[in-house]
Design a protein around this nucleic acid. Structure first.
Ligand SMILES: [Mn+2]
Ligand SMILES: [Mn+2]
Ligand SMILES: [Zn+2]
Ligand SMILES: [Zn+2]
Lengths: 160, 160
DNA sequence: ACACTATTTAGGATTTTATACTATTTAGTA
DNA sequence: TACTAAATAGTATAAAATCCTAAATAGTGT
């Protein structure tokens, strides 16, 4: 994954702009963390990013790496897969269904979607491996949380 | 969620059959854990299941609850949402894409699907709340793991 | 009904992942 | 160059899940 010099500049510029837009500082740590995530397609975990960053900044702390990663996500510069401080949940509902998870309160709601059900089948053939499950997970803010939210925040959530 | 007496019998019977089919014992702990997950649509986490089970078996251990939950999942009696001993992963790929996660090695592979992309849009209007992201996550066994797998296990994986 | 034994459990220790705290350093500004 | 709020390093702590081992028990055979 050799991201050329030109692309690196773009990345850095995106980071700079994003930080400025929310009035945060551009630190060397933030640059290196972003670079290290941006230059791979391996979906590294925090520990892997930490090790990579340490090669540039030996004294960097794990805390800084985590803070920066969540920050980059909040800025829309990277996204996250898998848990972020969530626990496993269990579901014995045997009927085919999908989930909407609230980013505010964490509640998971069931919903049906014949449309989503179709897909899974047609995609099970081709692909990188042998598909066992296909899960569509929608995330957002649930009706309940929206109602108990100040209007300004609700508008922000809508824009996100 | 009042699962009637009839349905409870069915549940218990499913558990009994599933355990027998793999030569495992039907214990009171396993019955209660399954019952407690089966009788709610609240997607409880392990701690919540633990508390519920304790009302029936005060001395039950958290370890038993976890072991049983993963077992029930492996038997296909329940399913899990969210992480199971996975770490968060980070992804700076700005192009729209989805993921295939290998259940064996944990690797996440990118893949494109115009078909999957379409969906998200049409579903963003209706629903339980305000959708921010829609992520299709396929899970299974990646080609690499399939190749380094004994044939018998591969067949089992195919059936799962 | 009773005994046998591989399986399962309870309870506590441990690991893993991530966050909290705080004294020190630094980026942005003038 | 000096100022100051923001950010970091280093360490402590928390939270989620698993490991370990002696004791208990489900299923089996008599
Ligand atoms: Mn569900
Ligand atoms: Mn990706
Ligand atoms: Zn909510
Ligand atoms: Zn794999």
């Amino acid at each position: 994954m050799d991201t050329g010099y030109r692309e690196q500049i773009n990345q850095l510029d995106r980071l700079r702009k994003a930080l400025k837009s929310v009035g945060m500082k551009l630190t060397y740590q933030r640059m290196v963390v972003f670079e290290e995530v941006a230059k791979t397609n391996q979906h590294p975990d925090a520990e892997a990013v930490y090790e990579a960053v340490r090669r540039h900044i030996p004294s960097v702390s794990l805390d800084t790496v985590y803070r920066t990663l969540w920050l980059l996500r909040d800025l829309g510069l990277i996204r996250t897969l898998g848990p972020q401080r969530e626990k496993a949940r269990f579901d014995a509902n045997p009927h085919r269904h999908h989930h909407f998870v609230c980013n505010a309160c964490g509640t998971a709601f069931d919903f049906d979607s014949p449309q989503f059900d179709e897909l899974t089948v047609s995609y099970k053939l081709e692909l990188v491996g042998q598909v066992q499950t296909a899960h569509v997970e929608l995330r957002g803010i649930c009706r309940h949380c929206l109602e108990s939210m100040p209007l300004r925040q609700e508008k922000e959530a809508k824009e996100a």
